[in-house]
Deep mutational scan, measured.
Amino acid sequence: AEKTGIVNVSSSLNVREGASTSSKVIGSLSGNTKVTIVGEEGAFYKIEYKGSHGYVAKEYIKDIKDE
Rank of each mutant, 00 (worst) to 15 (best):
A1E: 15
A1C: 07
E2Q: 14
E2H: 14
E2M: 13
E2V: 14
E2S: 13
K3P: 05
K3A: 07
K3H: 09
T4C: 07
T4E: 13
G5F: 03
I6F: 06
I6Y: 09
I6T: 09
V7D: 02
V7L: 04
V7Y: 01
N8A: 15
N8K: 13
N8G: 10
V9S: 11
V9Y: 03
V9M: 08
S10H: 11
S10F: 06
S12L: 11
S12I: 11
L13Y: 03
L13Q: 03
L13N: 02
L13I: 15
L13M: 08
L13V: 14
N14H: 14
N14R: 10
N14A: 14
V15H: 00
V15S: 01
R16P: 00
R16Q: 14
R16M: 15
R16H: 15
E17G: 08
E17R: 06
E17Q: 14
E17S: 12
E17K: 07
E17N: 09
G18A: 14
S20E: 06
S20V: 05
S20D: 12
T21M: 13
T21V: 10
S22L: 10
S22H: 14
S22W: 07
S23T: 08
K24N: 10
K24T: 08
K24C: 06
V25S: 05
I26L: 10
I26G: 01
I26M: 06
G27N: 02
G27R: 02
G27E: 01
G27D: 03
S28G: 06
S28Q: 14
L29D: 00
L29P: 00
S30F: 12
S30N: 12
S30D: 11
S30V: 12
G31S: 15
G31Y: 11
N32V: 05
N32S: 08
N32G: 14
N32D: 11
T33C: 06
T33W: 06
T33L: 06
K34E: 08
K34T: 13
K34D: 03
V35T: 02
V35E: 00
V35Q: 01
V35K: 00
V35S: 00
T36I: 15
T36C: 07
V38W: 09
V38N: 04
V38L: 15
G39T: 04
G39Q: 04
G39P: 00
E41C: 07
E41F: 10
G42Y: 06
A43N: 13
F44G: 00
F44Q: 02
Y45M: 03
E48K: 13
E48R: 11
Y49G: 01
Y49C: 03
Y49N: 01
K50Y: 10
K50I: 07
K50P: 02
K50H: 09
G51F: 06
S52T: 12
S52M: 13
H53R: 04
H53W: 09
H53F: 15
G54L: 01
G54V: 03
Y55G: 00
V56E: 00
A57V: 14
A57I: 12
A57C: 06
K58F: 03
E59Y: 09
E59D: 10
E59C: 06
Y60I: 03
I61C: 02
I61Y: 02
I61K: 01
I61L: 08
I61S: 01
K62D: 11
K62R: 13
K62P: 03
K62A: 13
K62G: 12
D63E: 15
D63N: 11
I64G: 06
I64T: 09
K65F: 09
K65T: 13
K65H: 15
D66P: 12
D66S: 13
E67R: 07
E67K: 14
